[in-house]
Amino acid sequence: MKWGLMGIALAFLAVFLMTPLVVLLYNAFHEGWRVYQMAVLDPETIAAVKLTLFAVICAVPLNMIFGLAAAWAITKFDFPFKNFLITLIDLPFTVSPVIAGMIFVLLFGARSSLGAWMIAHGWKIIYDVPGIVLATIFVTFPFVARELIPLMHAQGTEQEEAALTLGANGWQIFTRITLPNIRWGLLYGVILCTARCLGEFGAVSVVSGHIRGMTNTVSLQVEILYNEYQFSGAFAVASLLVFGACLTLLLKLYVEKKMHYGKGSI
């Protein structure tokens, strides 16, 4: 029984998870280390990596602050339409990335009056870096909040209230009580958020403009190389994202371990 179930489960994972990964890594390296190195060290690839990291640096802290605020409001207080608010926070999760990109084009494109006004005054949003950052923020919007809400809900409010009766102010309660309690959950959310930022394709593709070395993120650079018949190069750059993903996932493993200890100590 045990072996049967395990066999089926692992076979399924092998087909759906391992195969694409193996294909990717095989293609990345089968023309040799030199081709790999050339693709990865190409100035355009480096510019794409920088842009992707820049989007991560902008999107993750903002979504983190939002996640903390939202989780605090939702789990520590009762107010009307709370469930509706939670649903709205989840919304970007189910919106197709294509639609996510499209709404920013509708909002800031030259055909909308706001967009036309902004472009006339030299504020370029879409087809430039701000658009890419916005699309990334939108797509990864719920990640930290989703992670924190159940955690803080489970922890309740007793500790904070005790601190309050002892005379602590709001900031002290937050930094000394709440933050240490949720730190691993927070980090977990941040990691997932980062991973998703790195890999976003659909939404970014709609708002990017595809200017080489300027508005291409890593996932777009992969597409470009692929369309230039540089298959090994495309897979080589893609493998960077895989390593990035593996790194974040390993980090996640470590955090999970810590989270279990954390739970035990409460």
Binding site: L17, M18, R196, G199, F201, S219, L241, K252
Partner: peptide
Amino acid sequence: AMIDLPFALPTSVAGIS
């Protein structure tokens, strides 16, 4: 750890692979 891979892998890369 691998189960989260589809989350982190860019969808275009997944499609190509």
